[in-house]
């Protein structure tokens, strides 16, 4: 009798605690979602109604704000540029990175450990430090104001993490697989393409995701290297469109929406994979 009483008391207490936890989590979720919802709502208003009641729902939906931001704000161009830059960076850094990782993890040479440390040091160097020398150098090479001029540093900064993660994956492949490939008469290049690469798919997903997200959102390098409106990437176009021109707020909100919508869509579709992938990458880093 006494025993059951305490159990039900315990149960009630834990139920209250669970409810409190949920209330806390929901409030927090609201803090995360409301600002973004506010942007959505405001981006569909016009300025005159915005100033009167910034938090009210729009009376007439103004799609024109989006059209303005897309064309006059150069966000359409910018999105294309961002996509080109991120895709090329992704591919090149994966190819170069996995090749180097294979050499470090599988090939036998004296300096492989040293090479690994060399790349690892790169992870600690903030891009700010090399911004000025790169700016000077790329100016002389006529790479400033071209997309190539930002792709090259992006690849370089994606390399260390790519190599580090891929080394982990390649080292995890059982030696027997390579030995049997060797008996089958595979060359070392075939071993890389036929044995190592197919077994490191997860590694590619993780590193690819990290590099794409980081470069899609990168502002500083792109801002320093790109002068021409036609070459700007998304974060730069957004910054430079919203900053000085904000006489029409609703159009600015539409611009912000355009900038984050692709990421949100991708995120909603693949949230679990993205979160797990990025976390796996960060854990390893």
């Amino acid at each position: 009798m006494n025993n059951t009483m305490t159990i039900s008391k315990e149960k009630r207490r834990s139920r209250i605690i669970t409810t409190l936890i949920y209330i806390f989590l929901v409030i927090l979720a609201i803090i995360y979602i409301v600002p973004i919802l506010w942007v959505v709502i405001t981006s569909l208003k016009n300025d005159s109604t915005l100033m009167l009641s910034p938090w009210a729902m729009p009376e007439h939906i103004e799609w024109g704000n989006y059209a303005f931001a897309w064309t006059k704000g150069h966000l359409g161009t910018a999105m294309l540029n961002s996509f080109i830059v991120c895709s090329i960076t992704l591919i090149v850094s994966m190819v170069f990175g996995s090749m180097a990782a294979f050499a470090i993890a599988r090939l036998r040479w004296k300096l492989s450990k040293l090479a690994m440390y060399y790349f690892l040091i790169g992870m600690m160097i903030p891009i700010h430090t090399i911004l000025i020398p790169l700016f000077v150098q790329f100016s002389q090479w006529h790479l400033s104001n071209t997309l190539t001029g930002i792709i090259v540093p992006y690849i370089t900064f994606s390399l260390p993490i790519t190599i580090y993660i891929m080394v982990g994956f390649f080292e995890g492949i059982p030696n027997e697989l390579f030995e049997s490939a060797c008996i089958d008469g595979c060359s070392v290049y075939k071993m890389f393409t036929m044995v190592a690469l197919p077994l490191a798919k997860t590694g590619f997903m993780v590193t690819g995701l990290m590099s794409f997200v980081a470069n899609w959102n990168e502002l500083l390098v792109a801002m320093v290297f790109i002068s021409n409106d036609a070459k700007k990437t998304l974060p730069v176009s957004l910054t430079k469109f919203v900053g000085p021109y904000h006489t029409n707020y609703c159009q600015m909100f539409a611009a912000i929406m355009i900038a984050i919508i692709p990421t949100i869509i991708a995120y909603v579709a693949f949230a679990n994979q993205i979160v797990e992938g990025l976390t796996a990458g960060a854990v390893k880093g």
Binding site: P35, I36, V39, V213, W216, N217, L219, L234, P235, V236, L238, T239, V242, M252, I256, A259, I260, T263, I264, Y267, I274, L278
Partner: peptide, 10 residues
Amino acid sequence: VLSSAALGLL
């Protein structure tokens, strides 16, 4: 995963 630039403006 969202751009800090966009969130900063927001």
